[in-house]
Each structure stands twice: as C-alpha cells, then as structure tokens.
Design a protein around this nucleic acid. Structure first.
Length: 491
RNA sequence: CGGGGUGUAGCGCAGUCCGGUAGCGUACUUGCAUGGGGUGCAAGUGGUCGCAGGUUCAAAUCCUGUCACCCCGACCA
C-alpha cells in the first residue's frame, strides 16, 4: 500500500498537502474549511459532471437552478429535517457594509439588518419543495424530475479537504411522484446510476445498501448509499439516494388531484454526489508517486515527452510527436505534447506521474531512427518500446486496459479487506489489526449499533442490498439475525 | 464547544529554554555546462519573525492579551 496513504493516518491534512497540493488539485483557501480547486483538479470534476449529467438525462431528468439563500422559516417546516440539519449553517443577517467612522476599513452596517435571516443552503429540499408546491396541481404534472448542479455550505466544526469542506460542489436531484412505488423505484434507479458511475468511471468498487435508522438522512424514510473502501481501510460514503416519503409534501403542503379526483400528497426523492468523489478517486487509487487517474476521467489521457538536444533535434522530434498527437486525437483521446524547453525529461516524467496521466509516450532521436516510441503506463510503471506505426490503436486499447486494471486492483483490495466475523472479540480484533469492511450479524436495534460505535468508532455503513439470507446471531446481543450488515470506520 | 499543538522567505523548517547583525533546505532569477527518470556548478532576489501592548540599552526569543490555523473528540456528502 502507498506510504503516503498509510503513514499519515494521524495527520491527513499533511497527506493532502503532500499529495494533493503537489498534484495541483487544491490548496487551502483563506476561507475556513473551503478549498480552491485548481484548473487541473477542476478539469477532473468537469469530466465527472459531463458523465453524470448524461446519465441523469438518459434517465429522464432535467437540470434546473434554485436560489442560494433560503429564508430561515422554510427550515422550521419539516421537523426531522430541522433536527438533522438546522445547526451548522452560514446565516445572512445583514445586507450592507459601511465605512468605519475612523476611516480605517469597513464594518457591517447595523442599520441594514434583515427582517428574516437567510440561510446559505446546506441542501435545497426546503426551497425546492416550496417551489414545487406551485408547480403541482394534478397527477398530470407528475413526475417532476429535476437535478441541480450547485454549491452548498455546511459550517462543519471540523473540515477535511475534499471529504468534508465547508463549501462543496455537488449535484442534488429532487423528484416528485404520484405514487409511493414510483418514488421508491426512482430512489433505487439513482443509486444504481451512482454505482455504475463509481465502478465504471471512477473505477472504485462500491457496496450498495440502505442506511440504519441512525445513519439515515434527516427527513428520509429510507436512505440508499454506495460505500467505498479507501486504501487506509476506512469507508467513504460516496453517494446517497433518499426516499423521502410524503414528509416534505406534508411540510410544504404539496398536494395534487389524482386520477380519482381526490387530493393526495406527492411522494419525494432526493439524491446527490459531491466533490467528495474526487477525494474517493485520490484515496482509492493514488500511490507514492502521486495520483493515478482512471483513463475515463483523466483530463489528459496521454502525454508525449520529447527527448532531444538542441533546436534541430527538437524540430524533428516535434514534427513526429505532433503527427502522433493528431492520430490519437482522431480517436477521441486527449493528448498533451509537453514541448516545454524549460524542464528536462526526467522532471516531466515525475511531474506527469504526480498528476496521474495514464499513459506516457517518450520519443527521442534514437526512436526516430528506429521508427519506435516508448510507452509507459501509470498504473503498473511498465515500459515498452514499440513501433510508431499503429501506436494509436495500441494506446486506445491500453487506456481501456488501464481502466479495467485499476478497477480490478481496487476490487482485489476490497476483497482482501472485507472480513466476516461472528463474535464481538473477533470484530474488535479485525477492526484494530486490519481495518476495512467487516460483515457481521446485527440484531437491528439502535442500542447495539450505539454500543459498537462508542466502543470501537465503527459504524454500520449499510445493510447491503445483495447480502445473502443467512441464519446467525447478533455479535452483541446474541439475538437471531437473517443478514450480515457492513461495518467499518468511516470518514 | 472541550483537550492538545503551531504561527519565522512562495513552500517545508531551525533559531525561543539561556535576549545581542534573520538562518537552513527547496522554489525563484541570471550565467555556463547538461539533456533516454526529479541535472551540476556559481552568483543573486526575496522576511513589518501572526497581531497588540509591556519589560529591557537591546525582544523572533521574556511577560500579558489577542487572532488565526492544525490535530484529537461531539457533527457530517
């Protein structure tokens, strides 16, 4: 396992400073707990957005945008939601600044106090349902299938770069349905979309399941989740899809006339993934030399590094390199020709490895003479010298192979790090010595869950959807259980 | 909000105990050499020592206050 990922267990911030900041992904901003996403990092997010956005549209959803500021009163309408959320928020109380009397700087104008405070959205359920109320009269208006790409703010007491920043980017889907069945169907469909995205694009294997009562989203009847395992043996909740029942419809009085002409409350779902996925990407695949990006999300899939001495050689190598670049681009591959004269090849190799570029091509005079090129892959460090002729076809299939290999590696790791235990002693021992996912029987009570959490800091990540029926007894209470649930220490 | 820690050059740090010219590594600039895995040598630029008071002939260093950040908990995508 990567040293960078294991040796920092007690100091993640340093880990990020070394790996992420060096990798040009982000740096701490002056704003508490926020992050600056640098161009290279943002390019990864844009790729994620593009893929997800298409998936959402393919499943019938449309994008919309709702306000950043939410009147405080909206939050008092759904009781469970308030309990779960209302606490750590940024609140707008004033709308104007003024110059200080002594002329030294600026202060909040006490005259400019807002009648009703505005909350910077921590999530948009309240304002969206307040809006949907006006959009829905009849069953003919349903379903409403909206998604919004936005930023949200949660004034977390403790922040962690990418995993828990005060401000983060995400998408939140909010849907309204005429029937319970249809809403549940939507909830499940979207967690499937997330699994598809995580595994086939991020190359991060995930366990799908439902949350226990205590871990469920505030205001939801059921929360579906995808749980990923990071290289340090901790779990990361990577996406959630909530079946909200009629709670928000009740709170915001969203009724419709059904086919029978009777008034009915609508059924709701919400679902989201965030820039935390970038954290997942980094922590699942990176090694001591930096990022390892899956080809499908890498902003630069292939980098060409020229090796030369003097202008004359540079011109010759450049000409060939540009030819290869064109051939690759014709296949839809994104290519960077690193023609900087300010850095040596060795430096460039290290730099592009740090940035996680999946394939590197290196070419010098020796290659020109032989009609060859050096191909190096980021995931295995394997290097081969191949004929230039037909290189684009080779690289194309190599990119696919790397995508698969990264995923396979992550699956193998997860398999190794998933342990079935049948006693609490064993549970504690595995958690302590090995970490990772633990499958154990649980009696279904919050008391048991609490005890385990207090004793060990491990939580029930989910009740896996694909867990086989199996007779067993709870590791704490000894009561009968039909299914193993997934435990882990989590971020 | 509780417990611990740190603020000194863009970044990483030493110097603080025991007050006396502001240091190291790296990065940056320039020159020459070098160029198939993070180049070498030489010269150079860059710091209100977090902020505000106090003690002193003299404060990065001692005292008081204050702010910010980080780590551990409670909270969470």
């Amino acid at each position: 396992m990567a040293k960078a990922l294991t040796s920092r267990e007690e100091n993640y911030s340093q880990w990020y400073n070394e790996l992420v900041v060096k990798a040009d992904l982000a740096e701490n901003s002056a704003v508490r707990g926020s992050m600056v996403i640098k161009p290279y990092g943002y390019a990864i997010w844009e790729k994620m957005q593009a893929v997800l956005d298409k998936m959402f549209k393919d499943t019938g959803h449309s994008n919309a945008y709702f306000p950043l500021f939410i009147p405080k009163s909206f939050f008092s309408k759904e009781a469970d939601h308030v309990d779960g959320f209302a606490k750590e928020c940024a609140v707008v109380t004033h709308y104007r600044l003024r110059n200080k009397e002594d002329g030294k700087g600026i202060e909040v104008d006490p005259e400019a106090k807002l009648e009703e405070e505005l909350i910077v959205r921590p999530t948009s359920e309240t304002i969206i349902w307040n809006t949907y109320k006006n959009w829905i009269q009849s069953y003919r208006d349903l379903p409403i299938l909206c998604n919004q790409w936005a930023n949200v703010v949660r004034w977390e007491m403790r922040t962690r770069l990418f995993l828990r920043t005060a401000e983060f980017l995400w998408q939140e889907g909010h849907t309204a349905h005429a029937t319970k069945e249809e809403a549940i169907e939507e909830t499940k469909q979207m967690i499937d979309v997330y699994k598809d995205f995580a595994e086939n694009y991020l190359a991060v294997p995930v366990v799908q399941g439902t949350k226990s009562d205590s871990e469920r989203f505030a205001g939801a009847l059921d929360t579906y989740t995808i749980e990923a395992l990071m290289q340090d043996g901790k779990a990361l909740q990577s996406g959630t899809s909530h079946f909200l029942g009629q709670n928000f419809a009740k709170a915001f009085d969203v009724k419709f006339t059904n086919k029978e002409g009777k008034q009915d409350l609508v059924w709701a779902t919400s679902w989201g993934v965030s820039t935390r996925l970038m954290g997942a990407l980094i922590m699942a695949h990176s090694d001591d030399n930096g990022l390892v990006l899956p080809p499908k999300l890498a902003p630069i899939q292939v980098v060409i590094v020229p090796i030369y001495k003097g202008n004359e050689q540079f011109a010759k190598v450049s000409e060939k390199a540009n030819e290869i670049k064109k051939a690759l681009e014709a296949k839809g591959i994104s290519v960077k020709f690193d023609n900087r004269d300010t850095h040596k090849p060795g430096f460039k190799f290290a730099e592009w490895e740090l940035k996680g570029v999946p394939v590197r091509l290196a070419m010098g005079m020796r290659d020109l003479d032989n009609g060859t090129i050096e191909v190096a892959r980021r995931d295995t460090y394997e290097k081969n010298t191949l004929q230039i002729d037909g290189i684009e076809t080779y690289v194309e299939s190599l990119l696919n192979e790397i995508q698969e290999n990264i995923f396979k590696k992550a699956i193998d790791f997860r398999t190794d790090m998933t342990t079935k235990v049948d006693s609490y002693d064993e549970f504690k021992k595995v958690l302590e010595d090995k970490g990772g996912f633990i499958l154990a029987h649980w009696d279904g009570t919050p008391e048991t869950e609490d005890k385990i959490k207090n004793d060990t800091k491990a939580t029930i990540r989910c009740i896996p959807l694909d867990a086989p029926e199996e007779d067993g007894v709870c590791i704490i209470s000894g009561k009968p259980s039909k299914k193993r649930v997934l435990f882990a220490k989590a971020y």
